[in-house]
């Protein structure tokens, strides 16, 4: 057991934990942030994706010790108060969530993509999103949401 300090959604949090415990469990069980989902535990579905220092990572494969002193963003940390991000709003406007269990991971991935590449091509969106599974198979609506978010942010920047 050791103490780990993590900045989660811009708040300084800490927990006493075995070093190899998955970040996913720490977020959900210690910090009460259940927006990040377990899907497979082997990095194959990416439902558990969070941003670690702005990079999308599978939190199920990330030992808590590796994020000590670093910053983590979960789906709960995207909106500013009641104001949703463009990606979140696009998922609503397209009605992209069916059961919605994969949505948090999808939104985090799309957020990271649009930050590093605000005008992605269709194939760049596909490359970024492909590791994520949606068993409802709402893939076309999810891609449409990411495209809409990219267009919207481009329009508002212009």
């Amino acid at each position: 057991m050791a103490r780990f300090a993590v900045s989660v959604n811009r708040k300084e949090l800490s927990t006493e934990s075995p070093p190899d415990r998955p970040l996913l469990d720490v977020l959900r069980e210690d910090f009460g942030l259940t927006g990040t989902k377990y899907g497979c535990g082997e990095g194959q579905c990416r439902a558990c994706t969070v941003l670690i220092d702005d990079q999308p990572r599978a939190s199920c494969l990330t030992p808590v010790s590796s994020v000590d002193g670093r910053s983590v963003t979960t789906v709960e940390g995207l909106a500013s108060g009641d104001e949703l991000t463009g990606v979140q709003q696009a998922f609503i406007d397209v009605d992209a969530a069916q059961c919605g269990y994969c949505t948090a991971g999808m939104i985090i991935e799309a957020t990271a993509l649009l930050k590093r590449n605000p005008t992605p091509s269709g194939s760049e969106i596909l490359d970024a999103m492909n590791p994520h599974l949606c068993r409802c198979c709402g893939y076309r609506n999810i891609l449409a949401s990411v495209e809409l978010a990219a267009r919207t942010s481009e329009a508002s920047d212009a």
Binding site: T34, G35, F91, I92, A97, G100, I107
Partner: peptide, 18 residues
């Protein structure tokens, strides 16, 4: 549109495992 969409995209909706 789905009425729970906002809760889903903000991570606020609690699924059974949540």
């Amino acid at each position: 549109l789905k009425t729970k969409a906002r809760a889903i995209v903000t991570g606020a909706h609690r699924y059974p495992s949540d």
